[in-house]
Design a protein around this nucleic acid. Structure first.
Lengths: 241, 241
DNA sequence: ACCTGAACACCGTTCAAGT
DNA sequence: ACCTGAACACCGTTCAAGT
């Protein structure tokens, strides 16, 4: 007979969770649990009750550590932003392009976490450091400082919107029908294409005449396109030497 | 004694609402009520219960007319999009720029309605007509068809993100404290500026060296900047004649 | 077909009471 | 300071029952 076998029932009941010993209620663990729910179910699935349940307690217990649900989500976002790689590249264009794709990939790895970036100024030191390097590269490359400064805003907004839209699209395809998402997605796009193709050719000559261009390209290609247009636009602002 | 005076209590109780005669439960009226709530309180304030209450009934009654809450919000969005003015302008650049500002203004006039455009293909005939004209102008102006086609996507996303962000920012300033939003907004920006200014100059020479450019410009200027960079980027794709 | 009341399974936050 | 159970004022949607 081992020690474990002799554990009294009360003590055994005190640690019933899969996560092993009852995790103490610390801010860090609370934020991690919120992030775990975001990663598995999305931001809308985070509830104070669900987070609290992971610690075998009620929602009221969380309010000793966070102001409210918004505060908790903000902390979860910051934690992810703090893992953001720093921008790197030979030219400001290469750096800008690569970093845009990096930010997109990091955000997209956490379901609809990108939604939380709207209407907030990122508080992450890592993001600040990234902004410093990007701005220095652009200004060093001849981009007018005002163009470089505002470009940080624009690009953040565009990336967040793209990731959010991509996630919502994925959600549509993953309807509750149990059918594979790719199949639903294909059907969705076929339906959209058919609606475009069925437009009267006389009233919509341009739309019906360019179905391939309108329908073509996946999310990655369209995102790249947007970034590249923006970079080209900034490059056009560099005064001739 | 008039007829009205003789109205029995039961009948009087049947029409107690400020909206006069009890509005019959028609889809159109339901969508209008949802839109009224969106315009006064925002999309999050729309609830099936609140909409139903305007018709002196319970939420279950709505389900004879709409599939669910998402469906109702989608219908409200379409109703607004159907009021969108058509693009016009001398050149494709002027048309593109003006229409971007128009879309922004229409969406911004309905609080955070713009949020609903994420992850959806607009079903509005008015939007389809606008796309036809924009696309024709761009291609007619020499913009490669693939660039023109994808630009519709990118610009929709950017406008929606900008309006959504702007609304969220406005929300932050309009905290429950009762203080005037402009004052809260000024303080918020001053705080942000001070945080930027207090960054160590040796580690963040570029950020601290360009505070004016980073902090300057209101929402309109920053939006215009993004649109203009994108237009310049597209213009750079026009092959030399 | 349209409408309804009641119920189900949830929410975020507050509060008095404990330690 | 931290934690808790109970309560408050909400949600979206379903369902059996009505017309």
């Amino acid at each position: 007979m081992t020690i474990a076998d002799r554990t009294p029932p009360d003590l055994a009941r005190a640690r019933p969770r899969a996560r092993g010993d009852k995790t103490p209620l610390r801010l860090d663990a609370i934020v991690d649990e919120a992030l775990r729910i975001i990663d598995t179910e999305g931001t809308d699935a985070v509830s104070m009750r669900k987070v609290a349940a992971a610690f075998d307690t009620g929602p009221a217990s969380l309010y000793a550590h966070v102001d409210n649900k918004d505060d908790l989500l903000r902390l979860a976002l910051r934690k992810v932003l703090d893992t953001m790689p720093l921008p790197a590249g030979e030219t400001w264009q290469a750096m800008f392009r690569a970093h845009a794709h990096t930010i997109r990939a990091v955000l997209a790895a956490h379901n609809d976490l990108a939604r939380l970036t709207f209407g907030t100024v990122p508080e992450s030191d890592q993001v600040t450091e990234g902004s410093e390097r990007l701005l220095a590269a652009m200004i060093g490359g001849g981009v007018p400082p005002q163009v470089a400064a505002w470009s940080l805003d624009v690009i953040s907004l565009y990336i967040a919107a793209d990731v959010h839209e991509g996630w919502l699209m994925g959600r549509i395809f993953d309807d509750g029908s149990g059918r594979p998402p790719e199949e639903v997605g294909m059907e969705y796009f076929r339906g959209f294409g058919e609606r475009m193709a069925s437009l009267p050719k006389d009233r919509f000559p341009t739309l019906t005449g360019h179905l391939e261009e309108l329908m073509g390209g996946d999310g990655d290609q369209r995102f790249s396109f947007g970034i590249d247009m923006f970079i080209a636009g900034m490059a056009a602002q560099i005064p001739p030497t």
